[in-house]
């Protein structure tokens, strides 16, 4: 990975931080990548996570954290360039391809990613997973959405209430 310039440069070498998942696995990653997380950014700016300390993430297991970091490492260079004003079309297409592939996952992994993106406040990842769920919802009826997203079968009361609301909002999927 090419080291992105980190404003107040650290002698050219990319600064590394250590993140510790809920099941005590340690991940060493460039500070620039970890800083895509708003939550981590402050700690890192404060000098945390370096050396032997590591930043514990009690809400994120190692499988999820490794996935999250895969995203962050891929997106860190573009983010360091302040979004992507000088990114080439090729770069952007590559990121898009990566994103599509990245969320091609089963629902329990997606769930964990949504939670992690939310807790760690990784904006780009949040919108990526939200878009994935939106795609799962679009064009479906409420009942199909329930099935797709793992709702239990509705109770008779819930069913009645759904019917009433479908009358109200029936226009939405005429």
């Amino acid at each position: 990975m090419a080291a992105p310039e980190s404003g107040d440069g650290n002698n050219g070498a990319a600064r590394m931080v250590t993140l510790i998942s809920s099941d005590n696995t340690r991940f060493e990653v460039e500070a620039a990548a970890a800083s895509l997380s708003q939550t981590l950014q402050l700690t890192i700016l404060d000098g945390g996570g370096g050396g032997g300390d590591g930043i514990p993430l009690p809400n994120v297991d190692s499988a999820t954290l490794s996935k999250v970091l895969e995203y962050c490492i891929k997106h860190a260079p573009a983010a360091a360039n302040g979004g992507a004003p000088n990114a080439t079309a090729v770069d952007r297409a590559e990121l898009e391809r990566f994103d599509n592939e990245f969320v091609n996952i089963d629902q329990s992994v997606l769930y964990s990613l949504i939670m992690a993106a939310h807790n760690l406040e990784i904006e780009g990842l949040q919108s990526l997973v939200a878009k994935k769920v939106a795609d799962m919802i679009k064009g479906k009826s409420p009942m199909e959405i329930r099935r797709t997203l793992g709702f239990p079968d509705p109770t008779p009361e819930e069913q009645a209430e759904m019917n009433a609301h479908m009358l109200e909002y029936g226009w939405a999927y005429e």
């Binding site: 939106a134 919802i137 679009k138 479906k140 009826s141 409420p142 959405i145 329930r146 709702f151 509705p154 819930e158 759904m162 609301h165 479908m166 909002y169 226009w171 939405a172 999927y173």
Partner: peptide, 10 residues
Amino acid sequence: RSLGVAQCVC
């Protein structure tokens, strides 16, 4: 439109 549908989910 999808928000309208989502309102009916639960």
